[in-house]
Amino acid sequence: MIDLAAAAACVIALLGIGFRLHQVRGTRPAAGTLYLVAFALCMAVAMAALSPSASAAAHGRPPWALALGLAGGELKIAAQGFLALLALSVEPPRRGRKLMIRQAIGTLTVMAAGAAAFLLAHPTPATGGLYVDPPGRPTLTCYNALFTAHATWCLAVFLLLIGRAARQVEDRLLRTGLRLVLAGAAVGLVWAVLSIGPLLDALTTGHQLTREDRVSATASVLALTLGIGGATLTAWAGLPARPLRRLRAWYRYRRLAPLWAALRTAVPEIAFDAAGAAGGHRLSTDAEFALYRRVIEIRDGQLALRAHLRPEIAERAAAEATR
């Protein structure tokens, strides 16, 4: 079950990366896009490194087991840093640049100090985790405290800045996407706060999991689903409605055919091309564009015939429409 959740988190993150890169293909991606891709990539690799399958593969090989645990934690710290940088990228350029430099330095410092504390604790691999003798437990606790404090800080910055930006957005779809992203960050913040329990367990017992547990894997899947889904909502939300829009355009195109044919008989030059003039009922592969073109041709025909209309016709048509 945990392996399935970890695999789902990896797949969600990788799909989000692919979809986002597909959106910006052919253009220079913005800094926010790069931070989003880096966050998702770090989380995907971290979930793979901390999965039960990876832990089982490293069983009996102490250096590999410790390396996987350390790498997974370091990648999660990096992902948290990229998330904070993503939030800071919405700040005014001058102020945001300074804050982003400080955040990058802070994240790198936490990664270096965390790795040093992890190694200085002299952990030994245990089943699905590691064990630290009493002299090294305070050092391991420092590593856990750095991880938890950094995660809490980055998620709080993200919630504060993106929440403030979301309140200023008028587009409903974009605002909904930002709210989904904020919900994912809130899940991550709750998970970071709850990780204080395992931190205290490591201090008192010396045992700590290096692979994902059920709560952590579930929180990761939920947070990534909400975050990646919200970040790409504006791109994929319209896909299910596209066939309906085409069908509606095709129906309106057909309904306008008699009027178009009558005007085209009276004013042949309204047709944009010979194919359109010859096949009045021939529909382009793009129904919405075909409808747009037909409406323009009808308007052109009305303008061309305006000189032949009696003045009272407009009033009579308006009265009939009102009735």
Rank of each mutant, 00 (worst) to 15 (best):
L4Y: 11
L4W: 14
L4N: 05
A9I: 01
L15W: 10
I17Y: 07
G18H: 05
R20I: 00
L21T: 01
V24F: 04
R25H: 10
T27R: 15
G32Y: 02
Y35Q: 06
V45I: 15
A49K: 05
L50G: 11
S53C: 04
A54H: 06
G60D: 06
G69V: 08
G72M: 05
G73V: 01
E74S: 11
L75Y: 09
A79T: 01
S89G: 01
P93C: 04
G96Y: 03
R97S: 11
L99C: 02
M100G: 02
R102H: 07
Q103V: 05
A104R: 14
T107A: 14
M111G: 04
M111H: 08
A113Y: 07
A116T: 11
A116I: 12
L119T: 12
A126I: 04
Y131A: 08
P134H: 07
C142T: 15
L146F: 10
F147S: 13
A149V: 15
A151Q: 03
T152H: 00
W153C: 04
W153Q: 05
L155I: 03
V157T: 12
L159T: 00
L159M: 09
L161I: 15
I162Q: 10
G163E: 03
G163R: 02
R164Q: 14
R172Y: 00
L173E: 07
R175N: 02
R175S: 02
T176V: 00
R179Y: 05
A183R: 04
A186N: 02
V193C: 09
I196M: 08
D201V: 14
T204M: 09
T205A: 02
Q208F: 08
T210P: 01
R211T: 13
R214A: 14
V215W: 13
A219V: 00
T225F: 14
A235S: 10
A235C: 00
P240H: 10
P240M: 08
A241K: 01
A241T: 10
A241D: 07
P243Q: 09
R246C: 02
L247S: 10
A249L: 06
W250K: 13
Y251K: 09
R254L: 14
A262E: 14
T265R: 14
V267R: 14
A278K: 12
G279T: 01
H281V: 09
L283G: 01
L283V: 12
S284H: 15
S284M: 10
E288S: 08
L291T: 06
R294D: 12
V295F: 05
A314E: 12
A317R: 12
A318Q: 10
A321Y: 11
T322A: 15
R323W: 06
